[in-house]
């Protein structure tokens, strides 16, 4: 189990005025300030659960993952992962831990992935039997068994992520931190990684914390999400609940004649000043409460020549984006 209580982390950062003059000035006097990367974070994650950590860049997701995996020290607060304090870096904990960072490679670049796996076998002291059993299981599940002997630098980005995932899971970790595991992957590779992770969780029951900017990753893999904004958790609960709370909204999507673009913008701004609107060329999206949608559609049809009209539910990524922007609790 992961238990985090009142976790805070602040970084000392300095600001430098631009240009050479600024650099010279900063040589003698620096303006330091403290940035709260994490501010009183508390949460709990049970075995078999995948918690989705969602937030904008710089919100504190990776900082939290780095503290939980023992890479950096917190400023204050309590953390227990599988009963260990991560930053004490106990080898018994590190043997059960796994971390993958989508933007950082861990395998030896010029060598085939299998060579790196052999090194990991020694590092984690994996028995021959378990090692070959896991290699078979992981390479077949990820459909990558044909690339074990190819140098990592020659693999495609998708293949590289698959072998990175293999490296992460070879020692049967009980707690797994996945920091943007699908970043930069094409849609097919993203899907392959997602379905593998779903299957892996079902079969092995580890604790998983997943951060991703791809809402599909979160939606498909996590029943529970934690939204982080400016280092604080502003929502921690079922993904369904946050979606349901917002399902009272719908969006009207339509197109107008090019000659009407200016007129409809003024019309919508006057008529629906509080509602969210999106204008891309002649394609328009208007978000409204469900009960207002019928009346608004009628008015639009009366005043404008409307084409390709559709009324849609707000998708989860939009819901979360709004939640993070407006900080509704």
């Amino acid at each position: 189990m992961i238990k985090v209580e009142n976790l805070c982390k602040s970084f000392k950062i300095y600001q430098k005025p631009p240009g050479l003059k600024g650099s010279l000035k900063a040589l003698f006097k620096r303006d330091y300030f403290y940035k709260n990367a994490l501010d009183n974070v508390s949460l709990q994650v049970e075995p078999g659960e995948i918690l989705g950590l969602v937030g904008a860049n710089g919100a504190g997701k990776t900082t939290l993952v780095k503290i939980l995996s023992g890479i950096i020290y917190p400023t204050s607060g309590e953390v227990s992962v599988l009963g260990y304090n991560p930053w004490k870096r106990d080898n018994r904990y590190r043997k059960q831990l796994s971390l993958i960072m989508g933007q950082k490679a861990q395998l030896w670049w010029d060598l085939p992935a299998f060579d790196s796996f052999l090194l990991l076998k020694e590092i984690y002291q994996i028995s021959d039997k378990n090692f070959y059993k896991n290699i078979d299981y992981l390479s077949n599940s990820l459909n990558i068994s044909h690339q074990m002997k190819t140098p990592v630098r020659k693999l495609s980005l998708g293949e590289r992520m698959k072998v990175e995932l293999m490296a992460t899971l070879l020692h049967d970790p009980k707690v797994i931190f996945l920091d943007e595991p699908t970043i930069g992957l094409d849609l097919m590779s993203q899907r392959a990684v997602r379905s593998f992770l779903a299957q892996y969780r079902k079969e092995k029951n580890p604790i998983i914390i997943l951060t991703s900017h791809y809402m599909q990753d979160i939606e498909e893999l996590c029943r529970r999400i934690a939204l982080i904004k400016n280092g604080s958790i502003i929502y921690d609960g079922p993904i369904d609940k946050i979606h349901k709370d917002y399902s009272q909204f719908q969006s009207i999507n339509f197109e107008v004649l090019d000659s009407d673009i200016g007129r409809i913008q003024n019309f919508l701004i006057q008529k629906f000043p509080e509602n969210e609107k999106e204008f891309i060329d002649n394609k328009i999206k208007l978000r409204l409460k469900k009960e207002l949608v019928g009346e608004a559609t009628k008015e639009l049809l009366e005043h404008f020549s409307i084409d390709n009209l559709s009324i849609n539910q707000i998708d989860i990524s939009k819901v979360i984006e709004n939640y993070l922007q407006h900080d509704q609790t």
């Binding site: 995996s69 023992g70 890479i71 080898n91 590190r94 831990l97 971390l99 590092i123």
Partner: peptide, 12 residues
């Protein structure tokens, strides 16, 4: 560049 990250998570 923060490349120490993975080394700190290994049991060696």
């Amino acid at each position: 560049k923060g490349e120490l990250d993975y080394y700190l998570t290994r049991p060696v």
